[in-house]
Design a binder for these strands. Structure first.
Length: 751
DNA sequence: CTTGGCAATGTAT
DNA sequence: TATACATTG
């Protein structure tokens, strides 16, 4: 259900940028001979030509639609080029699209606060940039206006048969324009520039909407596609919304929209206007009610969230019909594939963004062909997430079995009575940035809790740490940028006045102040005890209260007491933990104890571990050194350069062609650039601060090349990471990361 | 083919 | 926190 947020200002400048048939563009860039041809991206070619998940505009002209089968598409458009989604580990792999989306974000996030809304959509808050521009350059004195700006569609302008560009030029430069219109005009100029920038640097076109809030911007971005932008003026909102079918509005495309239609006979947004806020609240609850009342008037207070990275990672697959999984073995086989993909993405996120996921969730769908009971849902289950593919798999299997028992009743077996698993997915969520600064180990033993349990969103405020992590294949440019964009404070400060956007019946002042105060109410603070790390909280609640001294523990002690606890715990869940074994024996719990500076008898009965610790270290080394080799800078050639060579892309001259001010446009780009191209960009270099070599060196006396992988996997990721740092001491010290923001662009394909 | 497949976000309880 | 559900692309 949508939730009403107070609108802090009616003069924000918000843009929504939407990539045009994104997957198709990604494939066309990869295979330039596809450019200009009707093409679609398809997955699972095996059955009826696979399902279309993206359709290029040339193919749309021929009537090809999403949700057609490949075969159908061929019928209406015989020349269509069908490109398959990459497959890895037996399932669709969207990595290349995700990475392409990151490229776009890295361009768009250079101006204003930026929110990655999906794999191919971004919101921007350009208020500050627009205000700054307006202050500096009066629009009426604008001499040359970029083609791309003139090609904007401005809602509410009276064209009167004249050339739209002339009218737009006039609108842009009107001396007596409404202040909000002037800001929008600046927004349009900024967005046009950004879109060109995206095109130059990624070769992707996009469309955009520029408006005073997210809802309207989103609406506008879809109005003129592809490769165009449209502006929603303050005055045009009524005109825009009144006839708009209610289902076109975001959040109303589903059940709520249907309910509105059937309950109230509301078909357009205008139809909604007759209902009082009270009435809507009575029908749909306070939140949804006022959200609806506002939405009908074009009021929407949602903030652009400065967030460049996703909040969760998931990997899933469906097994329709006869392919349904009938045995635990089959389930485990697939779970293994899914967990391996998930682990890979978690590892990458850890290395490049220094983020740690804290919970693992397993979703499954089951079917039963005969029984009446078949509508029962397979319950999703989650538990604290332990790093390492093996651990994730073990926990996933346990979660699955817990869910299965619940679903079937503990007596029935999979396969009995026509049961099968038709879908599986594993998701990692609650991803928080690893705090920066001192060694993570020190932090662990000095109140790490406060970070982990923070109610703060994951992506804000982490300073670049001087860890010596591999720069290649990263998106760390996003991370670093994020630090700059996360202006939580500023966005609270800036809310001015005028709040009811239209001359429609408006709310009284009381409502406004109520909203605002409600919105900015400080988060209720948990007492410190409650804030300690939440994983494993239940299992150790009682113990937590017992002791609390800090500072005495050491890493040695930690390993002695906890290192191999997991190996056993997998087989032997403690008695008090009936059915959810993954939740209790995991590393966070262990760490929590360590932090509390006390031994936990249950775990420590398996003393040793020091030996085990030493014995198995080699695995760690092999596991670590292999990937880190990948990241090793090649002498003389940056990864970027190598990849450019690989891809045989040379592009610089073309970029220059489109660079002249005042004439460049996306149309022109295509006129001059049809064909394969790519850009060798000089991004701002980001130097990695000094080497870590001194840090880890052997204040303890074991050899780092004797660490058990499974032991390490058991550790919290930050510790793992730290270990890895030790394991590659001077590698990449003082290397300079070049072209970071498009590095991943050129990462080799994994197929 | 159990109704397209995979992924991500957000709310409510 | 864990879980279910809705919505979107």
């Amino acid at each position: 259900m949508p939730v009403a947020r107070p609108e802090t200002s009616d003069s924000r400048i918000i843009a929504h940028v939407d990539m045009d048939c994104f997957y198709v563009q990604v494939e066309q860039r990869k295979q330039p001979h596809l450019r200009g041809q009707p093409t679609a991206v398809v997955q699972y070619n095996s059955w009826k030509g696979g399902g279309l998940i993206a359709v290029g505009y040339e193919a749309r002209k021929d009537g090809v639609k999403r949700s057609m089968r490949g075969d159908e598409a061929k019928k209406v458009c015989p020349q269509i080029q069908l490109v398959q989604v990459p497959v890895a580990r037996g399932k669709a792999d969207l990595t290349i699209y995700r990475n392409a989306g990151s490229e776009v974000v890295s361009v768009l996030s250079r101006k204003g606060r930026c929110e990655r809304a999906s794999i191919d959509e971004v919101y921007l808050d350009l208020t500050d940039a627009a205000e700054a521009m307006l202050k500096e350059t009066p629009l009426e004195s604008l001499e040359t206006i970029d083609e791309e700006v003139l090609k904007s569609h401005v809602l509410g302008l009276d064209l009167n048969g004249k050339d739209e560009k002339d009218i737009v030029r006039e609108w842009l430069t009107r001396r007596d324009a409404d202040h909000r219109d002037k800001l929008l005009a600046c927004g349009a100029i900024i967005v046009a520039e950004l879109r060109l920038q995206v095109l130059r640097e990624t070769e992707f076109t996009c469309s955009a909407g520029i408006a005073h809030n997210k809802m309207l911007a989103k609406l506008a971005s879809g109005m003129n596609k592809p490769a165009q932008q449209t502006v929603v003026t303050y005055a045009s909102v009524k005109w825009l919304l009144e006839p708009l079918p209610i289902k076109k509005m975001k959040q109303l495309g589903g059940k709520l929209g249907t309910t509105l239609q059937t309950d109230l006979g509301v078909n357009t947004v205008g139809d909604l206007l007759q209902f009082s806020e009270q009435k809507l609240q009575d029908l749909y609850g306070a939140n949804t009610g006022t959200w609806l009342w506002n939405a009908a008037r074009g009021i929407n207070g949602d903030e652009v969230e400065g967030r460049l990275l996703s909040k969760s990672h998931g990997s899933g697959k469906t097994f329709p019909g006869v392919r349904a999984l009938k045995t635990i073995d089959a389930v485990e086989k697939w779970l293994k594939e899914l967990c391996e993909e998930l682990n890979e993405r978690l590892q990458l996120d850890l290395e490049t963004n220094k983020r740690i996921a804290h919970t693992l969730t397993l979703h499954a769908h089951a079917y039963k062909s005969t029984d009446t009971d078949s509508h029962k849902k397979f319950p999703s289950k989650s538990c604290p997430l332990r790093y390492g593919a093996g651990k994730i798999l073990q926990d996933s299997v346990n979660l699955f079995q817990a869910g299965l028992r619940e679903y079937l009743g503990s007596y029935m077996n999979l396969g009995d009575g026509g049961w099968g698993i038709t879908g599986l997915s594993v998701t990692a969520s609650k991803i928080v940035a690893r705090p920066s600064g001192t060694s993570s180990i020190t932090r662990y033993f000095h109140g790490r809790d406060r970070f982990s349990a923070s109610s703060e969103p994951s992506d804000v405020k982490f300073a670049p740490e001087d860890d010596n992590l591999s720069p290649s294949r990263t998106e760390s440019h996003l991370a670093s940028h994020q630090t700059e964009c996360s202006g939580e404070e500023t966005q609270i400060i800036r809310h001015t006045s005028s709040f009811d956007q239209f001359d429609t019946p408006c709310k009284d002042e009381a409502t406004e102040s109520c909203w605002l105060s409600k919105h900015h109410e400080p988060q209720p603070r948990l007492p410190e005890e409650e804030m300690s790390i939440s994983d494993g909280k239940q299992s150790f609640e009682h113990e937590r209260k017992a002791t609390k001294e800090k500072g005495t523990s050491s890493i040695l002690k930690f390993f002695q007491t906890n290192a191999c606890s997991s190996e056993q715990s997998d087989e032997k869940p403690a008695p008090e933990d009936d059915h959810m074994s993954p939740s209790r024996t995991e590393s966070h719990s262990a760490f929590h104890q360590a932090e509390c500076g006390r031994e936990h008898t249950q775990i420590t009965h398996d003393t040793s571990n020091f030996d085990q610790f030493e014995a198995t270290c080699k695995d760690v080394v092999t596991e670590c050194s292999l990937p880190s080799k990948l990241h090793e800078p090649q002498p003389g050639l940056s990864e970027k350069e190598r990849n450019i060579n690989d891809e045989k892309r040379s592009y610089e001259h073309k970029r220059k062609a489109t660079k002249e001010k005042g004439t460049s446009s996306i149309l022109r780009f295509f006129q001059t650039n049809s064909g394969s191209s790519s850009e060798a960009l000089d991004m701002e270099s980001e130097s990695l601060t000094g080497s870590q070599s001194k840090r880890g060196t052997n204040s303890w006396r074991y050899n780092v090349d004797e660490i058990d992988q499974t032991v390490v996997e058991e550790l919290p990721p930050e510790i793992q990471e730290e270990l890895r740092t030790w394991l590659r001491p001077q590698k990449q010290a003082n290397t300079v990361k070049r072209g970071s923001s498009i590095a991943h662009y050129f990462t080799p394909n994994k197929n």
